[in-house]
Design a protein around this nucleic acid. Structure first.
Length: 563
RNA sequence: AGGGGCGUCGCCAAGUGGUAAGGCAGCGGGUUCUGGUUCCGCCAUCCGAAGGUUCGAUCCCUUCCGCCCCUACCA
């Protein structure tokens, strides 16, 4: 609604502001998100979606959702459905403006005849190999097709017969007559139509010729009155062709194509081809595997649409190739959930603690706020306490390094919302593994600091053995072990798959109240991270918790980094 | 190599003739019954390099270097 954007400037907004200043398009801004329904949307598409819909929103215009379904060989309704789900989930609404390039096939065809009539297109019978040879190279001009000088009448007849299905697949193509000497290969008499007998998800078997991207895309934009056709950098060299086709058709609206750098994220791959390979090769459980960089994957992982939109906002839009640190995305989801998620407890890797001076059979309860930083905000629950507890195995060290302020022999720690305990004994099995800790508690420390002024270093989470509920916890890590898995020329990206990207904890315990938590809920397990109650695998009374993102951990950094 | 683009802090990214925003990460410190959060402070004398124009340039010119894209009847 605002006249100019109040958001961080980017070159596209600069272009739009300039256009509006001179009254171009009557000041209107109409964008579109044009996915080909041949795969699931990923985080890179999210950037484009946020950009296009965001621009339309900020300038009081509109954004269309248009399926670029010009190649039935690769497309499928499964994908159009998933794409609509994903765009909606991200929080955008195309209103009445849902379109399909296939809806324009007839119009496109009529325009093609118009080009033929104008002597600007011809039917060519060169095979793909021959065409390649005629195309020339980057440094040498191509040669004219021997079919280039057919008469208008013959071209028109052939085109009509191509449409009528008189020729086999691949026998002929319709080409634009632009010139074979252009230094821009895209302009060397590009193909407009190919014969391809595939059942189309919308037009069925009505067509056996399908338009190529360059021919269909710009004109689809034109038909819809798009003002700014935003695409990624690799289409920059196609812009002259985009413009050429439109200029050949007098009176047709001419949108402006603007290119920006696509998103790259480290430690993952963002190409449809590779993503499909991960799915079909069963390297992941599906398009919505929580480790996948797909929108469906982030959704299943527990990311919020708000956090993804915020991410798109933060990374900006520019023309320089770049690779964004995944930490940026993690910062977004942490920031979002920090104010929304209830704090609860989960012991991931349990170690038994027996409080020797606590009466057997006794139980008491502690009030624990769901949002300690602002207790009234989310209320509280009661945490049962008893003689035997579970604590996190990593919260105990027999020989702690300096700086470790959790539990160790002879040392004290605070049990969150409870007492201070002191480790008085360590019990090990035959293999020397610690299997139980003996401790004593200080009854004076319930909701109070030690009377004698002793300083207690740390606070750890815990669960009463008798009351804790078992739960499955899934920990996800980056899918690849290297920052640029797709960047190695010798090695296939799958060789860099991280074998530990999924760790399933079957013996984790959560506090009693959590056994009935609703699927789709997000919580913070204190000192651990943010978790999502998996909406698919959770069963009544048996929630499955997926770790969305761990909490920042300066101890891990300090102890690992050695500084 | 022909064409088209791009090079500003470890990673993103504003600025574009008047003397380097912001975010992420990092570092130091305060608060804290989450080694979380939060708060305070630090973090590019320099904008790929070299020349030139100018009172003055990251922004203008020249040359050079580096990276990306384009030779699919894919999009």
């Amino acid at each position: 609604m605002e006249e100019t954007s109040a958001r961080p400037g980017n070159f596209i907004r600069t272009i739009i502001d300039g256009d509006r200043k001179v009254g171009k398009n009557g000041g209107l801004v109409v964008t579109r998100f044009p996915p080909e329904p041949n795969g699931y949307l990923h985080i890179g598409h999210a950037k484009s979606i946020c950009l296009n819909f965001g621009l339309a929103r900020d300038y009081g215009g509109r954004c269309h959702l248009r399926f670029d379904d010009t190649n039935p060989a690769a497309e499928d309704v499964e994908y159009v459905d998933s794409i609509m789900d994903d765009v909606r989930w991200l929080g955008f609404d195309w209103g009445e403006h849902l379109y399909y390039a296939s809806d324009y096939f007839e119009r496109l065809y009529q325009w093609a005849e118009q080009l033929v009539l104008a002597g600007k297109a011809f039917v060519c019978e060169l095979t793909p190999d021959e065409q390649r040879a005629y195309r020339g190279t980057l440094t040498e001009p191509g040669k004219n097709s021997p079919f280039r000088d057919r008469s208008v009448e013959e071209n028109l007849d052939l085109l009509r017969r191509m449409r009528a299905g008189e020729f086999p697949d691949g026998a002929k193509v319709l080409r634009a007559k632009i010139g074979m000497a252009s230094p821009n290969l895209n302009l060397r008499d590009p193909i407009m139509y190919r014969i391809k007998r595939f059942h189309h998800h919308r037009t069925g078997d009505r067509w056996c010729i399908y338009p190529m991207y360059d021919w269909a895309h710009g004109l689809s934009d034109a038909i819809e009155g798009i003002t700014h056709s935003i695409c990624t950098l690799e289409f920059e060299a196609h812009r002259p062709l985009y413009d050429w086709f439109i200029e050949q058709l007098p009176g047709v609206h001419h949108p402006q194509q603007v290119e920006f750098a696509r998103l790259n994220l480290d430690y993952t791959v963002l190409s449809k081809r590779m993503l499909i390979e991960l799915v079909t090769g069963k390297h992941v459980s599906g398009w919505d595997d929580p480790r996948m960089p797909t929108i469906a994957g982030f959704r299943r992982r527990g990311y919020t649409p708000e956090s993804i939109r915020d991410f798109a906002e933060r990374i900006g839009v520019a023309k320089a190739d770049s690779v964004v640190d995944t930490g940026m995305l993690e910062a977004c989801i942490r920031e979002d959930l920090n104010t929304k998620a209830k704090r609860v407890a989960c012991v991931h890797d349990p170690l038994r603690v027996v409080i020797e001076n606590y009466p057997e059979g006794q139980t008491e309860e502690f009030e624990a706020p769901y949002f300690p930083d602002d207790p009234p905000k989310m209320g509280h629950r009661m945490l049962p306490f008893s003689r035997e507890l579970w604590i996190e195995r990593e919260d105990f060290m027999e020989a702690p390094p300096k700086g470790f302020y959790r539990l160790a022999p002879g040392k004290e720690v605070r049990l969150r919302f409870s007492y201070v305990i002191k480790c008085t004994g360590v019990i090990k099995d035959d293999a020397g593994k610690v299997v139980e800790l003996r401790c004593t508690y200080d009854p004076e420390t319930k909701n109070a600091n030690p009377k004698d002024g002793r300083k207690i270093g740390g606070t750890i989470h815990w669960l009463s053995v008798a009351h804790a509920q078992k739960a499955e916890v899934r920990l996800f890590d980056r899918l690849f072990t290297v920052p640029a898995p797709a960047g190695d020329k010798e090695r296939n990206f799958k060789e860099f798959l991280n074998p530990n990207s999924l760790v399933v904890l079957k013996d984790a315990y959560v506090e009693p109240s959590l056994s009935s938590i609703e699927p789709g809920a997000r919580v913070q397990f204190e000192r651990k991270g943010y978790y999502f109650v998996d909406p698919i695998d959770s069963k009544p009374g048996a929630p499955v918790f997926s770790r969305i993102v761990p909490l920042r951990d300066s101890w891990a950094k300090q102890s690992k980094g050695g500084k």
